[in-house]
Simulated assay, not measured.
Amino acid sequence: MSQHPLNISEAVPSKVINFSTFKKAAKHSGLIAFPSKKDTENLQAELAALQQELAIVKQEKAELENLLKQKNQDHKIHGIQIEIDVNKLAHQVEEITQSDYFQQLQLEVKSLRNNPIA
C-alpha cells in the first residue's frame, strides 16, 4: 500500500461558504434545526425578563443583608445598654450599703435580732 500525501486543496473548497448559505443548506437537509425569528424573539424576551427578575432578587438580597446587619448592631447596642445598667445598679447598691444611714440600720437590725421583745 503506497502512501500519498493528502492534497488539502481537493478536500476543502477554495471559496468559503458564508453563514446564511450554510444555514439554508442545513435547513433544507434537515440536519440542523435553527430557531425561527419568532422563537428567537420569544427567547430574547424571556431572557430579558429573567435578567430583570435576577436584578430584583439581587436588590432584595442586598436589602435583607442590610436589615440583618442593622438587627445585629441593634442587638449589640442593647447588650451594651444592659451591661451599663447592671454596672450602674451595682454602683448604686455599693453607695447605699456604704452610707452611714445604712450602716446604722444594719446595727439596729442586728440588735433587734439578738434582743427579742418579750
Rank of each mutant, 00 (worst) to 15 (best):
M1Y: 08
S2R: 14
S2N: 13
Q3T: 09
Q3G: 07
H4A: 13
H4V: 12
L6G: 01
I8Q: 12
S9L: 10
S9C: 08
A11W: 12
A11T: 09
P13I: 04
P13Y: 05
S14V: 12
V16T: 09
N18C: 08
N18H: 11
F19A: 10
F19D: 05
F19T: 03
S20G: 04
F22M: 12
K23T: 02
K24T: 02
A25S: 06
K27N: 05
K27Q: 11
G30R: 06
L31M: 04
A33N: 10
F34D: 01
S36L: 02
K37V: 03
K38W: 00
D39H: 06
T40Q: 10
T40P: 00
L47S: 06
Q51K: 15
L54E: 09
A55V: 03
A55C: 02
I56V: 13
V57D: 03
V57A: 13
K58R: 12
Q59T: 08
A62D: 06
A62V: 03
E63V: 07
E63F: 02
L64M: 10
K69R: 12
K69T: 08
K71E: 10
Q73H: 06
Q73G: 07
D74Y: 04
D74I: 03
K76Y: 04
K76N: 08
K76A: 14
I77G: 00
H78G: 02
G79H: 05
E83R: 15
I84W: 07
D85P: 00
V86F: 09
V86Q: 14
N87A: 12
K88H: 13
L89E: 08
V93P: 01
V93F: 11
E95H: 07
I96W: 05
T97G: 01
Q98L: 14
Q98I: 03
Q98G: 09
S99D: 01
D100F: 09
D100Y: 07
Y101H: 11
Q104S: 10
L105Y: 06
L105Q: 11
Q106I: 06
E108N: 10
E108S: 09
K110L: 13
S111L: 12
L112G: 03
L112D: 11
R113H: 06
N114P: 00
N115F: 01
I117F: 08
A118P: 08
